[in-house]
Amino acid sequence: MYKLNEEKMFYDIADGQAIVINFVTGMYYGASALGSMVLDALMQGKAPKQIVDLIKNNEGCVVDIDQRVERFIAALTEKEIFISDDQPYSQESMGDFVVVDGDYSLELNEFAEVQDLLLADPVHDVEADMGWPRLKEED
Results as ranks from 00 to 15, higher is better:
Met1Cys: 05
Met1Thr: 11
Lys3Met: 04
Lys3Ile: 09
Lys3Glu: 14
Asn5Met: 04
Asn5Cys: 05
Asn5Gln: 13
Glu7Cys: 04
Lys8Asn: 09
Lys8Glu: 15
Lys8Trp: 07
Phe10Ser: 11
Phe10Met: 12
Tyr11His: 04
Ala14Ile: 12
Ala14Phe: 06
Ala14His: 09
Asp15Pro: 02
Asp15Ser: 14
Asp15Trp: 09
Gly16Asp: 03
Gln17Cys: 01
Gln17Lys: 09
Ile19Val: 15
Ile19His: 13
Ile21Arg: 10
Ile21His: 06
Ile21Trp: 02
Asn22Arg: 00
Val24Gln: 05
Val24Asn: 03
Thr25Cys: 12
Gly26His: 00
Met27Ser: 12
Met27Glu: 15
Tyr28Ile: 02
Tyr29Cys: 08
Gly30Gln: 15
Gly30Ala: 14
Ala33Ile: 09
Ala33Val: 14
Leu34Gly: 08
Leu34Ala: 06
Met37Arg: 06
Val38Ala: 03
Val38Lys: 00
Val38Gly: 03
Leu39Cys: 11
Leu39Phe: 06
Asp40Lys: 11
Asp40Asn: 12
Asp40Gln: 09
Ala41Ser: 02
Leu42Phe: 00
Met43Trp: 06
Gln44Cys: 11
Gly45Arg: 00
Gly45Met: 04
Lys46Ala: 07
Ala47Gln: 00
Ala47Tyr: 00
Pro48Ile: 10
Lys49Val: 14
Lys49Cys: 00
Gln50Ile: 10
Gln50Lys: 10
Gln50Phe: 10
Gln50Glu: 02
Asp53Pro: 01
Leu54Asp: 07
Ile55Gly: 03
Ile55Trp: 06
Lys56Ile: 13
Asn57Met: 11
Asn57Ser: 10
Asn58Ala: 10
Glu59Lys: 10
Glu59Asn: 04
Glu59Tyr: 08
Gly60Lys: 03
Val62Trp: 02
Val62Ser: 11
Val63Ser: 14
Asp64Glu: 07
Ile65Leu: 01
Ile65Cys: 02
Ile65Asn: 01
Asp66Asn: 15
Gln67Phe: 15
Gln67Cys: 13
Arg71Tyr: 14
Phe72Cys: 05
Phe72Ser: 11
Ile73Met: 03
Leu76Asp: 01
Leu76Cys: 00
Thr77Trp: 08
Glu78Trp: 04
Glu78Ser: 13
Lys79Glu: 14
Lys79Pro: 02
Ile81Ala: 07
Ile83Arg: 03
Ile83Leu: 03
Ile83Ala: 01
Ser84Tyr: 09
Asp85Glu: 03
Asp85Ile: 08
Asp85Gly: 03
Asp86Gln: 02
Gln87Ser: 11
Pro88Gly: 10
Pro88Ser: 10
Tyr89Asp: 05
Ser90Asp: 04
Glu92Gln: 07
Glu92Gly: 04
Phe97Leu: 12
Val99Ser: 04
Val99Thr: 08
Val100Asp: 10
Val100Gln: 11
Asp101Met: 10
Asp103Tyr: 12
Tyr104Gly: 07
Tyr104Glu: 09
Glu107Val: 15
Glu107Trp: 06
Ala112Arg: 04
Ala112Asp: 15
Glu113Arg: 04
Val114Ile: 15
Val114Gln: 08
Gln115Asp: 07
Gln115Arg: 11
Leu117Arg: 04
Leu117Met: 12
Leu119Asp: 04
Leu119Ala: 01
Pro122Trp: 13
Asp125Glu: 15
Ala128Gln: 05
Ala128Thr: 07
Met130Ile: 14
Gly131Ile: 06
Pro133Thr: 15
Arg134Thr: 15
Leu135Glu: 05
Leu135His: 13
Lys136Thr: 15
Lys136Trp: 14
Lys136Arg: 13
Lys136Gly: 05
Glu137Thr: 02
Glu138Phe: 12
Glu138His: 13
Asp139Gln: 05
